[in-house]
Structures are given as C-alpha cells and as structure tokens.
Design a protein around this nucleic acid. Structure first.
Lengths: 120, 120, 120, 120
DNA sequence: GTGGTCTAGACCACT
DNA sequence: GTGGTCTAGACCACC
C-alpha cells in the first residue's frame, strides 16, 4: 500500500475503512480487523492503528468492546451521515477541480448528464 | 515530488503540465522548462523528461524548436480540446467514486446544485 | 544490415516496415515481429526497436496488443495514405535528383513516357 | 564517407565524379584530383582510385596526361551522353520504386506535374 | 512470451 | 545551451 505523504496515514487508512462501511463491504455490527492486524496489513505502527479506531469511535462509526474487538456501528443513520459526508467532500473536490479547468457548474452538470446517457 | 507508483511517471508529469496549460499558468507560445530542467525539478531521468515532451508534442500541445526549446502551442483549439478531455476524465472519476458510495447520478447532480447555491 | 549514419536508425527500419505494409508483404492484421526480435534481426537496441513501433502506432499504421504483440492496422485508408506519402517522397527525391542533373520536369516526364513504351 | 557495401566502391566514387561533371562542379578540361588525393579523400586504396580513372577514361569522360594528371574531357557530347545515361538510370530506379508502391506510370507523371505546379 | 516504463550515461546536431 | 538519438540493462503488467 502506498500513502500520500502529504496527509496523515491514519486519515488515509480511516478513509479506506469508512468507504468499506458505506459500500457495505463492512456491514453494521461486523467485526473490524484488530489493531495488530491493521498494523500488519498496512505496515503501520500499532499506535497509529489504535488511533484510527479512536477516531472512528469518536465519529460514532464503531464501538469498541474490550476483550472482544471493535465493531461497525449498527446505527444506520451514522453510516448514512458518513455517506453524505464523503459524498459532500467528493463533490467539493470535483467542483474545485472543474473550476480550475474553467468549467462552470452548469457545464459540469451537463457533462454528468451526458455521461449518464451513455451508461443508460 | 511524490509519484503514484501505479501510473507512469511521464503521465503524471504530463498531467501537471497539461493542467498548467489549461489554467493559463503556461500561456500559448510560452517556453516550457527544458528537458534537463524538468528532469532535475522532478528528479526523473532526462530520458523520461524527453518522453513527456514527445507525448505532448504528439498531442499537438507543444512545438519543439531544436536548439531553442519546446513551447506551448498557440493553437487555442488544441488547448480547448485538452480542457474538455481533462474535464471528461474528472467527470468519470467523480461518477465512479459516487457510484462506489451508492450515490445516484441524480443525487450527485442535486448535491452539486446545492453546493452551487452556497457559492452563489 | 547497414544503416546510413546520417538518418536515424529508427527512421530507416520504420521505412522498411512501411514498405512491407504498402507492398502487401505485411498484410492488414498481420503480426509484426516482436520488439525483441526486431532488435536481434537488425542488431539494434530493444529500446530503439520499441520506439519504431511507437512511431508506427502514432501514425496509425499498427495496433499494439499488450502481451500479444503489435499488428498491422486493418484500416486500408491508413495504408493508402502511407502509400501516397511514400510515393510523394520518392517523387520529390526524383525531381531534386533530376534537377541536379540539369533535367527539366518536362524532360523527366518525357523520359518516363518513353520508358513506359518499352514496357508496353 | 560511407559506402553501400552492396556495390563496388569504385562504382560509387565514379558516380560521385560523374555527377560533378554533369552538374558543372567539374567543368570541361578541369583537372581531376590525383589518384593519391582521391585515395586519401575517400580513404580507399590507391589501386581502387586508379581503376576509377581507368573506367572514366574508357567512357571517354576524362583524359589521362602522363606526368600532368587526369582531366575532364572537353567533349561536350560525352558529358551530355553521361547526363542522359545518369538520368535514364534515375528514371528506371524511380519507376521500379513506384511500381513496388503500386503506383502506375500515369499516376507517377501526374504526381510530378502537381509537384511542378507547387514550384511554379 | 509480449509491450511499457524507467534509469544511466553517451554522442550528435542545431542556435 | 537546446532537443534527438542510441545503447545497456533493469523491473513490471499483461496474456
């Protein structure tokens, strides 16, 4: 795995886990990999792995059960809020990118609709 | 500079230069950095740097003048075509990302319009 | 194989392949020798061989299929355009040669017609 | 100087001298370089150089004056015949080349006339 | 096996 | 100084 050295590793790994939650690859109540396993899988420090779960727990996305592990929250609203948050960030990134290219929001929407037609 | 090891270096550097052309940071007819300078700036091999300009020239984005350097094309149509190409790629990336998040094209468009209102 | 040191090797080898395409010795869709084989056959560097196919591909004369090889295009129009291009170059070379000999275009044409009668 | 290893060197050097005679770079009665000088200039064997002048003399293109050197013939007819000979060879080469490209004599002539118009 | 990419370092022609 | 070409040899992804 390669990380962008500009943003903290824990943010990037957390992002991966968040995406898995939203897409359903990690369903509600499902057990997340242990801190040690996470550390091995991404070759990061166990401390860093621990921080990731602390942050996710603070966002209400997972629950730590001592001696059992950490589990994806069963609160669908949380997941849905996460989905909206991630989508919102993606939209912002997209719009700023299009803005840099000198493409207006209206044109961006038009291009999206045309792309949609191809897939229809 | 850090490169994504998944995509060729020359593609990534070419993308940087292309973006500069579209945004106007590199205006029509303006001199591009020499191959050697590009190699130093991004710590890549001069050969790789040369390939970048060969590709850009093949796309009609720059003109090579032996002994003088390579210059951004003055053909505005080329730049405009590039803008559309880059925008199209951004749209595709955006849509696939939203699709992974389970967001439909209609919802994506709605989010964009709402974002637009905030800026309005 | 002996190369004229005045013109790039890749140009000369490309010319050989182009001629084979136009004359039909390399038919549409036919597999071209692999880059490595080309390198051995003409005792050139594999890198140079690769460049030849890159140039031919850029001219739309062949299609590269990763892991399979590169194949002569099946687009007859491309081949025809190539034929015209090669013929045009031959005409230019011929005319400059005749000019050096002090032979006018009209006389050159007359000589060609007479040559033609012999063959008729 | 680079020679085509397929045809005898003396033929190639003789061709160079012949061309100079026809174009006027070597005028009638003008002194040709000595055998030794020819040998040095083209890094060929003095024997080979001597043979060249023997052949040229046999064609009536130059006259050997012992102790003085060899001189271009002053017989204009000889030069003119040479011109026609060289031109004839060029025409033949041109036609066979066009034939290989699948271009008829008529089309070849047409292309020549069009090239002529550009220069007119 | 195929082509694609990259590095290292060389020589050349042109301005 | 510029780009153009060439060699040598390496690693990778694809089929």
């Amino acid at each position: 795995m390669n990380f962008d050295p500009m943003t903290p590793i824990w943010v990037q790994v957390a992002h991966l886990l968040q995406t898995d939650m939203v897409t359903g690859r990690l369903g509600p109540g499902e057990k997340l990999p242990s801190g040690r396993e996470l550390a091995v899988r991404y070759t990061i420090n166990p401390n860093t792995a621990a921080r990731i779960y602390q942050k996710l727990e603070a966002q209400g996305l997972c629950e730590v059960k001592r001696g059992l592990g950490t589990f994806v929250t069963e609160d669908g609203a949380r997941i849905d809020a996460l989905r909206k948050s991630l989508a919102g960030e993606a939209v912002k990134r997209f719009l700023t990118g299009m803005d840099r290219l000198g493409v207006s929001r209206e044109d961006a929407v038009r291009m999206i609709m045309e792309e949609g037609e191809e897939h229809a």
